[in-house]
């Protein structure tokens, strides 16, 4: 394959994916494409079908129907080559607790049939890159949460993959560790690595992803860049009003403003620019108004609802 044709082929091309477990439909006609070099996000509440969709990419979950092509290869026939060219950083810690940090990388390299010299070289580079060199003889169980996560990332990169799948890579990390992981992911992205991310942290998705989809009940609700999605569904700015007056409610209705009424709190999504903000500030706000920028979290909650899922 020449470089030219490769650049034309999307890294992931999922068409009309379906997955049923008995009568439950986990993935319901999902289609998406991930282009080379993209940082692509898959967001959704728990049980939305994200993890199932991700597992389909590396052939861990057979499709009920539809087609999944990765690197232009069909997952049914090309699973081994696909897996040899991608890296997966799973949600749970799947590090091998019977082995040391370094052995985790070296033996994993063996599963990819990397030659010993290259495996050693890659593992040295990755331990250095993720600041784990001093821990290379440590047992995995003695690593902190942040270190274990960094080792998971290092292991996902051991085969020099063209695509990395990150399933909630920062869940459970403290802010320092999380920012460190983000910096590393940003850096890898700038080197042209294609990445697919799922996360519950909207801030993370907004900061990292070039483009994302929000999934619920196995279907795609929206697709776009974080900025465009925020502009479209949350407006330029958001006004939150505690214990809103009836007058404000009336105003909101009469002006046909986008809003969510939570009873003791009214959230107005301002798509009309600074004039509306001034108006609100003058007429309805004493101390109980919060003016802030629209965020991906607003988009997510507006689209998937505020009800608890579990």
């Amino acid at each position: 394959m020449t470089d030219h044709t490769r650049s034309m082929t999307p890294i992931i091309e999922a068409r009309n994916l379906h997955k049923r477990f008995g009568t439950f439909t986990a993935v319901d006609d999902l289609s998406f494409r991930v282009e080379k070099g993209e940082f692509f996000g898959v967001l959704g509440p728990n049980g939305a079908g994200k993890t199932t969709a991700i597992r389909m990419i590396y052939g861990f979950s057979p499709l009920t129907s539809g087609s999944m092509r990765v690197f232009g290869l069909n997952i049914e026939q090309g699973w081994r080559e696909i897996r040899s060219r991608l890296g997966v950083c799973q949600q749970e810690n799947t590090l091998d607790p019977d082995l040391t940090v370094e052995q985790n990388l070296l033996l994993f390299a063996g599963y990819f049939s990397l030659p010993k010299v290259i495996a050693g070289q890659r593992s040295r580079e990755l331990l250095e890159y993720f600041a784990l060199e001093h821990k290379k003889q440590a047992k995995v169980e003695h690593l902190s949460g942040g270190m274990a996560r960094r080792l998971m990332l290092a292991r996902a990169l051991i085969n020099d993959p063209e695509l990395v799948i990150l399933d909630e890579p920062t869940t459970g990390l403290d802010p320092q560790s999380r920012h460190q992981v983000w910096d590393k992911l940003k850096e890898l992205r700038s080197r042209g690595l294609t990445m697919l991310l799922t996360t519950h942290y909207m801030e993370e998705a907004a900061w990292l992803c070039d483009r994302l989809i929000i999934v619920d009940h196995g279907k795609i609700l929206v697709e776009g860049t974080p900025r465009a999605l925020i502009r479209e569904h949350a407006g330029d700015s958001v006004v939150e009003v505690e214990t809103p007056s009836e007058a404000l409610r009336e105003f909101t209705r009469s002006r046909n403003l986008q809003h969510d009424d939570l009873g003791n709190r009214l959230i107005i999504y301002n798509t009309l620019g600074p004039d509306l903000e001034h108006q609100l500030r003058g007429a309805f706000c004493d101390q109980t108004c919060t003016f802030r920028q629209g965020s991906l979290e607003d988009v997510f909650l507006r689209l998937t609802g505020r009800g608890l899922r579990e």
Binding site: R80, R83, S84, G87, Q90, N93, T94, D96, Y111, F112
Partner: peptide, 14 residues
Amino acid sequence: YQKTFDAMLSTPLS
């Protein structure tokens, strides 16, 4: 408990 097989099944191992 160790999810060792899950990790292996994300590599070219069947």
